[in-house]
């Protein structure tokens, strides 16, 4: 059944990364991404790779799943790499054929770019989606953006929308399942035929799904009003995020990562770009 697909592919666990506060993890992820773009030499990339592998080990997420996260991006990675190989010009010509010139710089640049994208995806997955429930993530985002409330940015409304979306996604998936079964029972065929026929076959699923979603939205809005909802103002909260020991450790790790990359860039500048 599709309803058991876990949202955001959260892996249950109790690692350092699981226990850390979502705000700390978000900060960590931002730092990680930024610093990754500063990596310049082979040594920095090697360090980043080692650091990321260590993160995977700490998180306890199986390597197989991590690879699965990268797979859908294989094409993009390959595409950017190829583009870089052919388009980057430099001093050391490696290969020449008619109008194709490949320089050493191009190859290095392409390789770095590929590693960077892979690390980016893996790092984000391990630090955030694999180890943080979507709810915690929303809470974290809301808290971090809280200062923006002063600038009249509707942070609360945004967070409320995210929560409701996450609450209803499993319900809607289940409902889609049911409607599909109901239409199959009336002889609907979703598999055969060309693109147009397949798209047409979806109408009997999409319309009921829309109709019931509107009804749900209506019901929910009334239910929320009846429970005295008036937006974010004057609201208290049951749960408050608290920083703990894990967060200190996580920020230390971030510091190690930042300084590691910088040091590698400066003192081991082999194959720098």
């Amino acid at each position: 059944m599709i309803k058991d697909v876990t949202l955001g592919q959260y892996f249950v666990g109790n690692s350092l990364l699981h226990r850390a506060d979502p705000r700390a993890k978000l900060l960590f992820a931002v730092l990680y991404i930024v610093v990754l773009f500063f990596a310049k030499s082979a040594a920095s990339f090697a360090f980043a790779l080692a650091f990321t592998v260590a993160m995977i080990i700490i998180s306890g997420v199986p390597f197989k799943s991590v690879i699965r996260a990268v797979k859908p991006l294989a094409f993009i990675i390959l595409f950017t790499a190829v583009l870089n190989v052919f388009w980057t010009t430099g001093e050391k010509l490696l290969f020449e054929w008619k109008f194709i010139h490949i320089y050493e710089e191009g190859v290095i640049f392409a390789l770095y770019m590929a590693v960077r994208i892979i690390l980016l995806v893996v790092g984000m997955s391990v630090a955030l989606t694999y180890t943080t429930t979507p709810i915690a993530l929303t809470d974290g985002i809301e808290e971090l953006l809280n200062p923006l409330k002063k600038l009249k940015v509707p942070v609360h409304d945004f967070a409320m929308m995210m929560t409701i979306a996450m609450r209803f996604i499993p319900t809607l998936i289940e409902e889609t399942d049911k409607i599909m079964d109901a239409q199959k029972a009336r002889g609907a065929d979703f598999e055969s035929g060309g693109l147009v026929k397949k798209a047409k076959a979806l109408i009997p699923i999409l319309i009921p799904l829309f109709v019931s979603s509107f009804k749900r939205a209506d019901d929910l809005a009334i239910a929320m009003e009846c429970r005295c909802y008036r937006g974010g103002e004057g609201r208290t909260k049951l749960k408050q995020l608290r920083y703990g020991k894990c967060d200190v450790v996580l920020l230390m790790l971030a510091a190690v990562f930042v300084s590691g990359i910088i040091l590698c860039n400066i003192y081991l500048p082999y194959f720098s770009i």
Binding site: I179, K184, A185, G187, I203, P204, S212
Partner: peptide
């Protein structure tokens, strides 16, 4: 799918499967 025409299944709360513009064309699906 031929079996499904011979064994008709009406699911729970089947009113949620209606989709067509008129009742007539929905029944005709």
């Amino acid at each position: 799918s031929k079996v499904r025409f011979r064994v008709g299944l009406v699911m729970q709360y089947p009113e949620y499967q209606l989709f067509d513009e008129t009742v007539r064309s929905d029944i005709a699906y």
